[in-house]
Nucleic acid binder design. Structure first.
Length: 232
DNA sequence: AAGTGTCC
DNA sequence: CGGC
């Protein structure tokens, strides 16, 4: 049973609800603020998605995706790798950033110029000028993978935003508040969507519901998420 | 230390 | 869905 989505890149209803936020018509992209300091950029990297995916393949060749273990001893359902000066890792000892891939003993692959450009541009469009990511965590979700509600708080400077790029299968992103029990907003993230959060929402809890089965022409049975941070 | 959990 |  093969399903195909998205059949339509942006829904008419979303366009109608956000008329005042529409960018110049030819881009067909939408800026949608959804929390204090948080912005959804629909279809932001549609023209760069194939290039980004090529880079993901090259990075995964040097630093293969692996399912890390949490300090509690649970293996995560999402497979991860990193590029940049430093990378986010977890094992029985804890969560942290490190310049060395523990699997290989080598540095993480360098952050491709296209990655940096996409992250910086998206941050700017969301209102964060001067963002200089030094880390990109790459998450690979397959059907059944999920990420429970958490905060990104291993970075040093919470004045720097988080930029999240979605590629491939549709996911339901949950964006909550300062505490884990704050209500969450559900946001459907499609291929080439970008989410940026910072400011008052920098430490908000967020997560991804269990990925549904599906097939995407660019990625197959997979969703990739590129999460750019300034960690150091 | 661990709530980024194929949790329970 | 809430709690640890």
């Amino acid at each position: 049973m093969i399903e195909y989505w998205p059949s339509k890149r942006t829904s008419d209803s979303i366009v109608r609800q956000n008329e005042s936020l529409l960018l110049p018509f030819e881009t067909q992209r939408i800026i949608e603020p959804f929390a204090d300091g948080a912005v959804l950029l629909r279809a932001e990297v549609l023209d760069k998605a194939e290039g980004l995916l090529e880079e993901v393949r090259a990075i995964a060749h040097a630093a293969p995706f692996r399912r890390m273990v949490t300090p509690g001893g649970f293996t995560m359902s999402v497979a991860m790798t990193n590029c940049g000066d430093t990378g986010w890792i977890t094992d029985r000892r804890g969560y942290r950033y490190g310049a060395i891939d523990p699997e290989s003993g080598h540095q993480w692959p360098a952050m491709p110029a296209l990655f940096r450009a996409v992250a910086v541009t998206a941050a700017e469009r969301a209102g964060y000028v001067g963002f200089e990511p030094d880390a990109c965590l790459i998450n690979r979700y397959e059907p059944g993978s999920r990420m429970s509600l958490h905060q990104d708080k291993n970075e040093r400077d919470f004045a720097q935003p988080i930029v999240s790029v979605s590629l491939g299968l549709l996911a339901t992103f949950q964006f909550g508040g300062a505490t884990r029990k704050d209500p969450v907003r559900k946001i459907f993230l499609d291929h080439a969507d970008v989410v940026v959060w910072g400011g008052a929402s920098r430490l908000n809890h967020h997560g991804v519901l269990t990925l549904k089965n599906g097939w995407h022409p660019s990625t197959g049975r997979v969703r990739y998420n590129l999460t750019f941070r300034k960690a150091l």
